[in-house]
Design a protein around this nucleic acid. Structure first.
Lengths: 130, 130
DNA sequence: TATGCACCTTCCCGTCATGGGAAGGTCAAG
DNA sequence: CTTGACCTTCCCATGACGGGAAGGTGCATA
């Protein structure tokens, strides 16, 4: 398979696939013409990567996940620990965003949103989170 | 005031303050020695920026907010529109993270997390979001 | 056979909002 | 006069790609 076909199959842009090769996540073969030749195993790996990325795992997490995926002697505890750590980061991010949302929503609610210049949002930003 | 004093006062790293000058968010004066000299108005602006950034506004949003802040003829509707648009982005991000969290939590819950290799997390990543 | 067009390649720059660190000038204290 | 804490500019790095140029390849059609 050539790259655009694989991109279609894995749901990743060709650019991203080249990037994943560059950083060593995949190692497709090369044809005599210099084109990348992807095996089914490459395509599976890329689909795996696409799903892991869509769950928010970093590239380095993905690298580790692929290692574990290919290690038949792995302990599921290692996978779970990685996933739980990521889950904790997601929760932290959600909490951060919810705090922002809370403050911002209060300011927005207090703002008349008309043609006059008086604005509680700007006052809030100028005066601090008091 | 010199930069480190201002950094303390505004709650921003000196590096960030230099960056904000570089991109034209602030225009501190310069002393004969080449050091930046910050007026009170610069410090206020930086504190404003720090708070806007902490609410997740992008630098370009901040630029616009500062413009509005300094425009005595502004309409609060313009500020409110900007804030509401940002609020919508925050909500979208929260929704995305919650979706991730949901999927990932299911996988984690299904994983024994012991010394055996069998792992629903890896199976889930390999098999797709079914 | 020529030609066109879609595909492939590498290479380099841009994103966003900084952080790190080098090389060198300045200032105040001892 | 030196030390050490400041300050300056400059360049490189991050994460995870995207855009686009310059040039080679493969295949169908006129």
């Amino acid at each position: 398979m050539n790259i655009s076909e694989v991109a279609q199959a894995a749901g990743l842009p060709a650019k991203t696939i080249r990037y994943y090769e560059e950083i060593g996540l995949i190692r497709p073969l090369r044809g005599a013409n210099g084109y990348r030749r992807f095996r089914d195993s490459d395509v599976h790996k890329l689909a795996f990567l696409a799903r892991a990325r869509s769950l928010g795992f970093s590239i380095e997490d993905c690298r580790r996940l692929i290692e574990l995926y290919e290690d038949r002697g792995r302990a599921s505890a290692d996978v779970k620990a990685l996933a739980e750590s990521h889950l904790a980061q997601i929760d932290a991010k959600i909490a951060e965003l919810r705090a922002m949302r809370h403050t911002l929503a209060d300011l927005v609610a207090a703002c008349a949103g008309d043609a006059r210049p008086d604005c509680p949002i700007l006052r809030g930003l100028a005066a601090g989170p008091a």
